[in-house]
């Protein structure tokens, strides 16, 4: 593990993008997240790590209210995006999700052409005045997702015909196209081979210059490679949160150390 590189990596800004205070999540009677406080800094990659079922994906889905689509889920506490409570009744979850984009574990392109996949978000939010503007958004998004060169000659072909890694980059392009401020990634590489994974990781580092990125990962190496901040979850609790280099080299909680050294997980 190249921990030294992680230590040297700086956080570019210190503007808080998301502040979560005292968040509890219940699935029916199950207490899935217990009193979690997290600060997500702008233009930073924040990694959530922890053993399976520790609640890291659940917490991620709180950040764009995707848990609303699950009937039995209940969220308590406050999550502020740019100082505004996203669980305030005045906030429309549909608009929130345009600002907080999401990339899922398994690539899930729509059964449409590559172009229509990327244009989906801009179309439903009315971001493009005309066809030319839409073309521009599609090209820009595909370039940001490092897919333009591979896809530019086959924009009218179905997105499901791409390879797994390309599909996942298409999903990233699709999320980027709505001009989000935060990108949530739920184990984006778990269904990909090592080469595709490396490409996505490189991409995540580039995306950091425009968005604040939150990534859930099972791979500690990946967290160490791509993130500046790391949060370690265990059994629904946030055990430790801090600089990635610090967490991996000098964890303050014994549970974090056990997980990193492979004793729990």
């Amino acid at each position: 593990m190249n921990d030294m590189r992680a230590v040297e990596r700086d956080v570019d800004t210190n503007d808080l993008k998301i502040t979560a205070r005292g968040v509890d999540v219940f699935y029916g009677d199950t207490h899935a997240i217990k009193d979690v406080d997290v600060d997500i800094v702008d233009n930073t990659v924040t990694a959530f790590i922890g053993p399976s079922g520790c609640g890291k994906s659940t917490f991620l889905r709180c950040l764009n209210r995707m848990n609303d689509t699950i009937d039995v889920a209940r969220v308590e506490g406050s999550i502020m995006l740019d100082g505004e409570d996203i669980y305030d009744p005045k906030v429309d979850p549909v608009q929130l999700r345009a600002k907080v984009g999401m990339v899922f574990q398994k690539p899930n392109p729509f059964p449409k052409s590559i172009y229509d996949n990327v244009a989906y978000g801009p179309r439903i939010h009315g971001l493009a005045k005309d066809k030319a503007a839409l073309d521009e958004i599609v090209e820009k998004s595909l370039r940001r997702a490092a897919l333009w060169d591979e896809a530019k000659d086959r924009l009218d072909q179905p997105g499901t015909g791409l390879s797994g890694g390309q599909q996942q980059r298409l999903c990233i392009a699709r999320a980027v196209a709505t001009n989000p401020e935060v990108l949530l990634m739920d184990e984006p590489c778990s269904a990909l081979d090592p080469i595709a994974t490396a490409q996505i990781e490189e991409l995540i580092d580039e995306l950091r210059s425009r968005y604040s990125v939150v990534i859930v990962t099972h791979s500690m190496q990946q967290a160490a490679r791509v993130s500046q901040k790391t949060a370690f979850f265990h059994l629904g609790e946030l055990v430790e949160f801090g600089e990635t280099g610090h967490i991996f080299t000098n964890p303050s909680d014994p549970r974090t150390e056990s997980y990193i050294t492979g004793r729990i997980g």
């Binding site: 549909v94 059964p111 978000g121 939010h125």
Partner: peptide, 10 residues
């Protein structure tokens, strides 16, 4: 697919 669409704010 539903998650993907909801996640984009549809």
């Amino acid at each position: 697919l539903r998650d993907g669409s909801f996640g984009l704010g549809a």
